[in-house]
Write a protein that binds this DNA or RNA. Sequence first.
DNA 1: GAATCTATGTCAGAATACTGACATGAGTCA
DNA 2: TGACTCATGTCAGTATTCTGACATAGATTC
Lengths: 152, 152
Amino acid sequence: MSQEGVGVDLETSLGYLLKEASSALRAAMEKVLRPLGMSVTHYACLELLAQRPGLSNSELARGAFVTRQTMNALLQTLERDGYVTRPAEAPVGKVLPARLTPRGQRSLEKASAAVRSVEARMLAGLTETEQSEAFRILQSMTHSLRGDNEGA
Amino acid sequence: MSQEGVGVDLETSLGYLLKEASSALRAAMEKVLRPLGMSVTHYACLELLAQRPGLSNSELARGAFVTRQTMNALLQTLERDGYVTRPAEAPVGKVLPARLTPRGQRSLEKASAAVRSVEARMLAGLTETEQSEAFRILQSMTHSLRGDNEGA
DNA sequence: GAATCTATGTCAGAATACTGACATGAGTCA
DNA sequence: TGACTCATGTCAGTATTCTGACATAGATTC
């Protein structure tokens, strides 16, 4: 820990701060999920399926911010281990709707509680108003970055 | 694109929103850095060195949110390609202070401009006041997650 | 001064995620 | 109906990052 205070611009960059917060969140999540034998992406997949049963592989990938190839590999593991089921054939097109098994639901419960406690800790120092502002601000950032403003 | 609106809780989770924004930022940065032949971690390393010359490998790793092993591998490449220099022997202890070469500085300039334009786009929809709030809120989240509040 | 603790740089192997590519099914349009 | 476009699931190979481990240097404690 040499010099602290020589820092110039990074400390004032909202982009850097965003990365910093996101990194801290991920680290905190990994810390509580590891004892449960679960990675962040692993958890994200189960949580998405709990809240939106029948999501396809590609939809899960988008929701967990990974490629559909990565999510597919994860789904195959989860299917093999009995946490998730997918029909052998697609009801329509090529889309295979995935669902949690009872085992998957049980596995998710503890993880979900752990993650919610992490999120609660993250928000501990913020008022209701600040949380609302954070909500709006983060959404604005995301939309601006994605270019959702063009062609309106 | 099946159902949009069935979503339950994820859309209201600040943790999820934080991940979403961070993911969008990273994607936008990759998009502008790729044509320059530079990855995000690559850029982060150069930017850190520009703002704080003499940073050690471990310090760079913490600043770029990767492990020191990862940063070390990157530094070796950057050193080999002439973007960065490190003394052959440590002036004190084992710590090797790294510095940008002129070539490294030149390489950084274009990347830095590109990244700043991305950040500007991210903040386009926010007022000065909102940016100040974002600053405070993100810092609070980071500190709370790291447990900087204990033992005060 | 010796023992202990912490932090560093580095090597090696494993895990994770990505890019590229392919065939297939659905929707669009003429 | 047929051509075209787009999205999907999946296989293969590559790239990136991480975990584990080791020796060493400085700080701390007694």
